[in-house]
Design a protein around this nucleic acid. Structure first.
Length: 287
DNA sequence: ATGCCTGAAGGGTTCAGA
């Protein structure tokens, strides 16, 4: 089962990149952020193209900004748009949608930017993260939180920590909020796989930042322990950031093994087979 | 230019993004 998350920075503008990417990478579950489309417009623009590729869709959008969606061809049940009790700015924004896909509770999130640490928007970001944590904490054992967290978890996740000193995305309260979310038992599966590598998911459009690989890792896939144990590969699809008309974010792609059988008692492996499948040591290069 | 690019809405410019 292949899961991906991608901040597309306008599904409408990204259509010429999104559809070929779906055909090439063939993810089973896709979390999209910044679709920037109302639900009716999303259906009109993408409905047939996605249905033709076998995807069921849970979209939660608004006219101009934000907007999230989950695409799934492995089931899409119990769709929940938004987060109960989440604050607005001032009104509720379309920043989250969750659904159960192939037995996993999948949360697609677009965390508020925060703008500047002294702004009301920053307070909003922290309050929103608190509401997200409440939702996840009350949720399923098998869970994925995928999306644009707008937080770089550690200094290794920005090209130059000094360049971001005093800015959002790296402040201790933001990182503490992320840590509190992870304390529910969520693993950062890309960092787990690439513990000390330079891995970014976002590069500013300006000043040749992508070309110079000056970016941040702010798009995360967080997995509860039973899901994290199934991770076979976790990488950033930098190809999607190249070429004509890219988003400023690259997709994160995670491959999961099949879920172990849950209802038939202990699984006894056949004598000729290894009890545990050997872990591959080679993974697709993220760049 | 203290926002170097991109997108949205709406209108000939301004806001938002991280």
């Amino acid at each position: 089962m292949r899961v991906a998350t991608w901040n597309v920075n306008s599904a409408k503008q990204r259509l010429p990149r999104l559809l070929p990417w779906l055909d090439e990478r063939r993810p089973d579950v896709v979390c999209l952020q910044e679709t920037k489309l109302a639900d009716e417009a999303f259906d009109q623009l993408l409905g047939d193209e996605l249905a033709g590729r076998g995807y069921a869709v849970a979209r939660h959008g608004e006219v101009q900004w934000n907007g999230v969606a989950i695409l799934s061809r492995t089931g899409l049940d119990d769709v929940l748009p938004g987060i109960p009790g989440a604050p607005g700015f001032p009104h509720a924004e379309a920043r989250a949608v969750s659904a159960t896909c192939g037995g996993i509770r999948v949360h697609c999130v677009y965390v508020p930017n925060g703008r500047t640490p002294d702004s009301e928007h920053y307070e909003y970001k922290l309050a929103w993260l608190s509401a997200l944590q409440e939702l996840i904490g009350a949720g399923a054992q098998d869970a994925l939180v995928c999306g644009d967290m707008n937080i770089a978890p550690a200094d290794i996740d920005v090209f130059d920590p000094d360049a971001y000193a005093g800015h959002t995305h790296v402040t201790p309260p933001e990182r503490a909020a992320l840590a509190k979310l992870q304390a529910l038992g969520l693993r950062d599966v890309v960092r787990d796989r690439w513990p000390s590598e330079r891995v970014f998911t976002y590069w500013d459009y300006r000043a040749g930042m992508f070309h110079r690989d000056l970016g941040m890792r702010i798009d995360l896939v967080l997995a509860s322990a039973p899901v994290a144990e199934r991770v076979r590969a976790a990488w950033v699809d930098r190809q999607a950031r190249k070429g004509t008309g890219p988003s400023d974010h690259a997709p994160v792609i995670v491959d999961l093994d099949e879920a172990p059988d849950g209802d038939i008692g202990p699984v006894v492996p056949p004598p000729s087979a290894p009890a545990v499948k050997p872990r591959s040591t080679k993974l697709p290069q993220s760049r």
